[in-house]
Amino acid sequence: MTDRVSPLLTELRRGTLTLAVLSQLKQPQYGYSLVQALEQSAVSIDQSTLYPLLRRLEKQQLVSSTWDTTESRPRKYYVLTEEGQQVLNELYSEWKQLSGNLQNLLEGGTSQ
């Protein structure tokens, strides 16, 4: 990848991060399992972005968190709240429309 593309790509990805993270939190996940889940779908996320993002989503009451201390080491699990589920649905339909529109734009070449 050329140096010119990578900053633009970062910018392009940034907006989709929230959607990607929310989509994986229908089931409770802890930080690292979330990273792996995202990576499995080839969505890479900077870990120094992810953990603060989770905290922000929690503050916005889109996800809730619980500490699980039953296993060998304590883990903080995040899961969508009801509100988060709604937001995810809305974002998802917006995304579908957006990507469709963009697809048309890119493949149609000229306008109209």
Partner: peptide, 14 residues
């Protein structure tokens, strides 16, 4: 405390 614990368990996971 919370961030420290989470980072600790994350690093252990990694």
């Amino acid at each position: 405390e919370d961030v420290a614990l989470e980072l600790e368990s994350t690093i252990a996971d990694m």
